[in-house]
Design a protein around this nucleic acid. Structure first.
Lengths: 336, 336
DNA sequence: AATGAGACCGCAAACGTTTGCAATTTTATG
DNA sequence: CATAAAATTGCAAACGTTTGCGGTCTCATT
């Protein structure tokens, strides 16, 4: 059995005063004399006293914990977002509990429940690719636990949301392709029910429409969000009678999957086929040719989402959910 | 004020039984009749009851939390490690609290204290570049809180450690350069007091020694662990009368920093100068020329460290710390 | 010397659980 | 039917805090 940590009562006994006094002394309560405060503080230091957050939380019915649920921590975008979240949370005196859904709805559910049990002050959630229901979020609403979606948001739940302007990013990307003279522009899209996929697809369609390019449904293929999906997507495009002359991928990993296959098949980028990704992963700058992409401020998204959540936690029930959209920027490089 | 969550007492009142019975029913205690269990469980479900981990933790004097401290979550290696940690922790019924030191000793200290206050069951730590003291870890020892170092370990503390075989990895890398005929092999090293820097430097030196290549101290420059350090390091090597014909960098970011400068200065890789990194970041495979590097199983390091910690948590005080070394592998690509 | 005001401190209850033990009810046995 | 044994439940204390309220003590003021 581990030696139990020193408590406020230990200090009290040692000084022959009451635990209440110790508590107040440590929190610098005006009722306590300077002398007592000094004695308490120095003994606390000496005895390695650390306040028990657990007991405090129980008493005060609130914790200093913020729960975070992401599909995969490894994913560059989420790692950066978590970084931003931690930064803001730290400054506001919160610690973050991070869990990953591994793109599984079931696991996401379980994570939500676990975090509820841990009595988190609030949650930051980016939903999994397979999440098409929202009962677990309803649960949060019923329990009146503040939560904010970021990046991959759930449209049918009323809650604050922080996203990047996916539509505009996609639009700018495709418009740039059009203006550069490309005619047959393909799109490897993401899972249909994810809002980011939809927005980016819509951006693609709008840009075509604006420039009076007729929409060819064969040029849009659907898949997931990983490299392998880029590989598969490109293979499907290869079946076409006539190859597209440009390719807009739903995100960078997909673009890179396609990128490799394109090169493997001996096509030149951008001469034979131009390529644009989405996210501005660090890697896109370094590949050859460097990849044109849409920058998506992951770190900022995390920070902003955390700020919004903390604001909501502080303001209580009369908080009106907001949706924030961060700007994207087209980073033009050599793949177009 | 938020609606307070439903408690065991709420259920008890509703069913006209005692809280003790509810508690036992929920935990499937044999003393409770099947009928009562059913009634309790269904009502609990209906009322959205979620056990209060805080209260449980207080009572049982242990939490289901594992603290994690890393320099930076964004860093590819750490993101992957955290991913592995979460995976193992999840399976063992733990949640992880993640905090970053931002390479600051002070912040690392604060994080340790915060996690102690949160009464974590154990800690997983990778120390910051600026950490040269170890008083905060002594604190953990005194409080008998289990903790395990991973990757960046603290040598003067007796605790379990999970590292990769940095020495061997570096040795293999440099030996490969030697066997490929390179003569003037430079090394951009990391911070001197970090064990990973030391081990990799020693691997470099040993390989030279084995092959009777005399050690030229001008060929070793020291810096940090980021891209900019690779840039700076290469600039210092540029000052030399005679340029090295090969360069072994302490890690991939540093290698990439150098990589870019090398190309900028119009040198060819590997003709003018060969380059080897360390970590096998995903990016290294995709740059042109692809980077020879030493693979370092980040995900595995995280998993193994978590496993070790959980074992230690379970076995109590009579646990003997172990140091585990995971194998590295030389990934030969086109930069050599 | 009596009174009142401050300054300082302690009592006890509460937060939501768990758990040893005792109390009660049910069932089995003679 | 009586009794013992077994099955089921409740009581109360405890985990480490915080906090409203009341208590004691010291002093200055009449």
């Amino acid at each position: 059995m581990r030696k139990s940590p020193v408590t406020i009562t230990d200090i009290a006994k040692n000084l022959n005063i009451s635990p209440s006094t110790v508590s107040r002394a440590l929190r610098n309560h005006p009722d306590i004399s300077t002398r007592t405060k000094k004695r308490v503080n120095s003994l606390a230091e000496e005895m390695d006293y650390h306040p028990d957050s657990i007991a405090q939380s129980l008493k005060q019915r609130r914790t200093n914990l913020i729960g975070v649920i992401v599909p995969e921590i490894k994913h560059n975008f989420f790692a950066a977002a978590i970084s931003g979240i931690e930064e803001i949370a730290y400054k506001a005196g919160y610690a973050i509990i991070v869990s990953q859904s591994n793109e599984s709805y079931d696991r996401e559910r379980i994570n939500v429940r676990a975090l509820i049990s841990n009595r988190v002050a609030g949650l930051l959630i980016s939903i999994s690719q397979t999440t098409e229901q929202s009962d677990h979020f309803k649960l949060l609403e019923r329990q009146e636990i503040p939560f904010v979606f970021f990046d991959r948001v759930c449209e049918d739940i009323e809650a604050s949301k922080v996203v990047v302007d996916d539509f505009d990013g996609a639009f700018k990307a495709v418009e740039y392709l059009i203006n550069s003279g490309y005619k047959r522009i393909a799109h490897i899209a993401g899972p249909k029910h994810l809002s980011i996929s939809q927005c980016r697809l819509n951006g693609y369609l709008s840009a075509l429409k604006k420039h009076k390019i007729s929409y060819d449904e064969n040029l849009v293929v659907y898949g997931g969000l990983n490299e392998e999906d880029g590989v598969k997507g490109f293979h499907r495009l290869l079946q076409l009678d006539q190859l597209p002359d440009a390719l807009f991928a739903v995100n960078d990993p997909v673009a890179i999957g396609a990128f490799e296959k394109i090169k493997e098949h001996g096509f030149k980028i951008p001469e034979d086929i131009a390529l644009i990704g989405f996210s501005n992963n660090p890697i896109t700058r370094l590949i050859e040719p460097s990849l044109t992409t849409v920058s998506q401020p992951a770190y900022e998204v995390g920070k902003r989402a955390a700020e919004l959540l903390i604001e909501q936690i502080k303001s209580g029930e009369n908080f009106i959910p907001r949706k924030e959209m961060l700007k994207t920027e087209l980073i033009i490089r050599n793949s177009t």
